[in-house]
Amino acid sequence: MVQIEGKYQHERSENLDGFFKAVGVPYVARVMMRMTSPLLEVLRDAGKWVVRSTTMVRTQEMSFVPGVEYDEVMPSGDVLKNTAQVEDDCISIVSLLPNGKKTTREYKFSDESVEVTLTDEESGQVAKRYFRRV
């Protein structure tokens, strides 16, 4: 079984701009996010999971119990309605955006890394972010 908890440093991304454009992220915010190299931290405490992304500009944190809907407040102030599942070496999060769109984030863990796949259900745009364990 893969150890999910830990810290991971961003290495590269694929089609991040296309995904963010599809879900309605403004141009300046998309440029800023493409330029970041976040540190991802995954923690678990008594059945509650925390996924924290830290850059020089900001820290964003999601706390959730698998299967229980929770709110995620975006930097824009928009609130996403999320539900997460944890199975084996994966964390999957389904988000309902304020505009009614649905997106998924899948964190696939290995002993050395995590691959994050972001999918916009409506447009089919898919982005990938790759992190190595530190």
Rank of each mutant, 00 (worst) to 15 (best):
V2G: 02
Q3N: 08
Q3C: 11
I4H: 03
I4S: 02
Q9K: 12
E11M: 14
E14F: 00
N15M: 00
F19C: 06
V25G: 01
P26L: 05
P26K: 05
M32R: 08
M32P: 00
M33K: 13
M33D: 10
T36S: 10
L39R: 07
L39C: 05
L40N: 01
L40D: 03
V42F: 06
V42A: 02
L43E: 14
R44A: 11
R44N: 12
D45Y: 00
G47L: 12
K48V: 15
K48M: 12
R52M: 01
S53K: 06
T54V: 04
Q60W: 07
Q60D: 14
E61L: 00
M62F: 02
F64I: 09
F64K: 13
P66H: 02
G67I: 15
E69V: 09
E72K: 14
E72H: 09
V73M: 05
V73E: 07
S76P: 07
D78L: 05
V79I: 06
L80H: 11
N82E: 12
T83D: 08
Q85W: 14
E87Y: 06
D89V: 06
C90N: 14
S92D: 15
S92W: 12
I93N: 08
V94G: 01
L97N: 04
L97M: 09
L97F: 13
L97W: 09
P98W: 09
P98H: 10
N99R: 03
K102L: 15
T104A: 03
R105G: 15
E106H: 01
E106K: 11
Y107S: 12
S110C: 11
D111N: 09
E112N: 14
S113R: 02
S113W: 03
V114I: 03
T117E: 11
T119Y: 04
D120W: 06
E122F: 10
E122M: 10
E122I: 10
E122Q: 13
S123W: 07
Q125S: 04
V126C: 02
V126M: 04
K128R: 12
Y130W: 05
R133P: 01
R133L: 01
V134R: 09
